[in-house]
Amino acid sequence: MKGGSMEKLKPILAIISLQFGYAGMYIITMVSFKHGMDHWVLATYRHVVATVVMAPFALIFERKIRPKITLPIFWRLLALGILEPLMDQNLYYIGLKNTSASYTSAFTNALPAVTFILALIFRLETVNFRKVHSVAKVVGTVITVGGAMIMTLYKGPAIEIVKAAHNSFHGGSSSTPTGQHWVLGTIAIMGSISTWAAFFILQSYTLKVYPAELSLVTLICGIGTILNAIASLIMVRDPSAWKIGMDSGTLAAVYSGVVCSGIAYYIQSIVIKQRGPVFTTSFSPMCMIITAFLGALVLAEKIHLGSIIGAVFIVLGLYSVVWGKSKDEVNPLDEKIVAKNQELPITNVVKQTNGHDVSGAPTNGVVTST
């Protein structure tokens, strides 16, 4: 019993630790930006690290199952590299620089709803208004979008979560710059969420023709490195921005590359195989809570009332979508079991012919069945 309980706890502990990993990325990345790290350069270095980390695993564990890269697969890989490493990461960094770590973390909870909308457009999801769980997905999406709009349009008064920590570590000063462009940051975060959702949709199609997950991630990160390097050479004119040292910028690149593009992928793949994507997604609001407290402790961030109200709506909408989606999903193994149970039992009735069965053996007038 004890071993069985631990097996059930492992996915939960793994996915919770992943939320701490993402929360740490929000904080470390924000610190690096405050020390002058350029987001184009950070995205480039991050995917260099991710490629170097993932490549050995892909080469060792998938050398026998790795499909050949055809031209259609290459175009999909290129599109995936544009959507996630280039567009999503840089839009996310722009949003993070212009808002706050807690705000960005809260807003990204709208990802499941945006993914659901795109899935409807590409006919990966269906809606039947005669079923409660199907209506729940639509209502949850509307609530989530409403929460995002509240966060965008209403800022509200600032609320200090850990006032004592502010005074102790930061002398009571807030890390929120007076010239922040919250509208620009919010638009960038929306763009980041949209491209991230599109990435998931395209990835689901790509995995059907290229089912080597580790190799796929390595190739995406490699393509992302090249694309970000080209974009950085165009957008960043200061050569000193590329300088690597023992500072927060290097820490952010290594941490996000290893933890959020390497270990995170491994944990997600294992948990999804064991418990499914709905289980994995349902823990995402934890990251928002962890980031809010870490932001208050480390960055002296203040959370605004509008962010709290909007986040509550986003979480409620998220769980409505997740609940509805969970009712849609049927485990293939369960389908086989149900189908097997519904099969009529086969009864072999041995016919009698003058006291003998069809094989000619005497039956003593008894009809046998198995």
Results as ranks from 00 to 15, higher is better:
356 H>W: 02
178 T>R: 09
141 T>E: 07
93 Y>V: 02
9 L>P: 04
232 S>N: 08
239 P>N: 11
102 S>R: 06
193 I>C: 09
119 A>S: 15
163 K>Y: 06
211 P>C: 11
310 G>D: 12
102 S>Q: 06
243 K>P: 04
216 L>S: 07
94 I>C: 01
193 I>N: 00
352 Q>V: 02
252 A>R: 02
17 S>M: 15
114 V>F: 05
25 M>S: 13
234 I>M: 11
331 N>T: 09
240 S>H: 15
256 S>R: 00
36 G>S: 09
89 Q>V: 00
301 E>L: 03
179 G>P: 04
30 M>T: 12
283 F>D: 01
2 K>M: 12
103 Y>N: 01
243 K>C: 04
203 Q>W: 08
259 V>C: 04
52 V>D: 05
60 I>C: 08
255 Y>R: 03
209 V>N: 13
226 I>T: 02
163 K>Q: 10
256 S>F: 03
16 I>V: 15
350 V>Q: 04
282 S>L: 12
343 E>F: 05
299 L>I: 12
312 V>F: 15
207 L>A: 10
263 I>T: 01
86 L>S: 00
336 K>Q: 15
202 L>I: 10
272 I>H: 00
123 R>E: 09
273 K>H: 14
314 I>Y: 07
37 M>T: 07
330 V>S: 13
80 L>C: 10
30 M>A: 07
109 N>W: 02
246 M>L: 15
127 V>M: 07
174 S>C: 08
314 I>T: 15
101 A>N: 02
24 G>T: 09
306 G>H: 12
50 A>E: 03
118 L>K: 07
185 G>Y: 05
192 S>C: 10
154 Y>Q: 08
41 V>R: 01
246 M>P: 11
140 G>K: 01
108 T>N: 14
66 R>P: 01
73 I>E: 02
49 V>M: 04
187 I>Y: 10
40 W>C: 00
211 P>M: 11
199 F>V: 03
81 G>D: 02
101 A>D: 03
108 T>G: 10
279 F>D: 01
212 A>K: 04
78 L>G: 07
231 A>S: 12
186 T>D: 10
351 K>R: 10
183 V>N: 09
63 R>C: 13
203 Q>G: 06
112 P>H: 11
276 G>A: 14
186 T>E: 05
119 A>R: 07
113 A>L: 05
157 P>Q: 11
56 P>H: 14
293 F>T: 06
40 W>H: 12
